[in-house]
């Protein structure tokens, strides 16, 4: 008995076959690029030019248009990686392994951006580059988890068993995600509490919120573009002598 309807299951199996995924990614990429620019340009213009200065921080607060979307993405990508890891372990789906391993460097990049921009903002606003409070420390651990996933994958020669080890690491590390998110509520931290995801209305003015959401959308689409490109490359690296790769080379020749 299966709780997934047959047509959906069929769709997944077809999409997950490497040649089908490769051509699908090729078709999607130009559209995603257009969407990315459509979100990024108004987001940046709205955030850096149109949005008013903050009543306390003046123009310094504008770092949130990079910092906050990057931090959201660092959590989002890790959860996605854990889900992929679960799928890879249970269904042994090759594409899930490829997506997991292709996501890790991108997630590490977003985490680094969040840490660096936060540090640059922290010096003038808090009076320090870095403090070991629960939010900052758990985000730093997230960076090490991403780097750990990439290095573990690189360290094991056989890529199928490497993918299995990496899937388990991704699943174990997911316990850090709720800790990062709730750290500012569970403990006294120097980092402020959540602004947008509060249960009542967000404590950010609407004129500042709209560019922030546009930037968050742009970062999501950027991730999709980056991960599809990385996954395409990883698929070819995995099966360099497969028939579909040969066909592809002949097409392009």
């Amino acid at each position: 008995m299966s709780f997934i309807p047959a047509p959906i299951s069929r769709f997944f199996h077809r999409t997950a076959s490497p040649p089908h995924f490769y051509t699908l990614a090729d078709k999607l990429l130009p559209w995603l690029t257009v969407l990315f620019l459509l979100l990024l340009i108004p987001g940046l213009y709205g955030g850096l030019v149109m949005a008013p200065a903050d009543y306390q921080q003046g123009d310094s607060y504008r770092i949130i248009y990079i910092h906050v979307p990057a931090a959201w993405m660092s959590l989002f990508i890790y959860v996605l990686m854990a889900v992929m890891g679960g799928i890879a372990l249970v269904w042994r789906m090759k594409l899930a392994e490829v997506m997991l391993i292709s996501s890790a460097p991108i997630g590490a990049g977003f985490t680094l951006v969040a840490l660096v921009t936060g540090s640059l903002w922290g010096k003038p606003m808090w009076g320090t580059w870095w403090v070991w409070d629960a939010r900052l420390t758990s985000e730093l651990i997230l960076l090490f988890l991403y780097l750990g996933v990439t290095s573990l994958y690189g360290a094991i020669e056989d890529k199928r068993s490497a993918a299995r080890a990496v899937s388990i690491l991704a699943l174990v590390g997911v316990v850090n995600i709720p800790i990062i998110h709730y750290s500012v509520e569970w403990w006294n931290t120097l980092h402020q509490g959540p602004t947008v995801s509060k249960m009542d209305k967000p404590s950010i003015h609407i004129s500042m919120l709209i560019p922030l959401l546009l930037m968050a959308g742009a970062f999501k689409v950027y991730y999709a573009i980056a991960v599809l490109q990385a996954a395409k490359l990883e698929l070819i690296k995995r099966e360099p002598s497969a028939q579909w790769v040969k066909n592809l080379l002949e097409q392009n020749a």
């Binding site: 008013p52 200065a53 903050d54 009543y55 306390q56 921080q57 607060y61 949130i64 606003m125 808090w126 009076g127 320090t128 403090v131 120097l190 402020q192 509490g193 959540p194 602004t195 509060k198 404590s203 950010i204 003015h205 004129s207 500042m208």
Partner: peptide
């Protein structure tokens, strides 16, 4: 020996704060 400012989670334009 050291004083750090803790920022709150509110962002608004100065006119709204006024």
């Amino acid at each position: 020996e050291e004083v750090l400012a803790k920022h709150d989670e509110n962002y608004m334009p100065p006119e709204v704060a006024d």
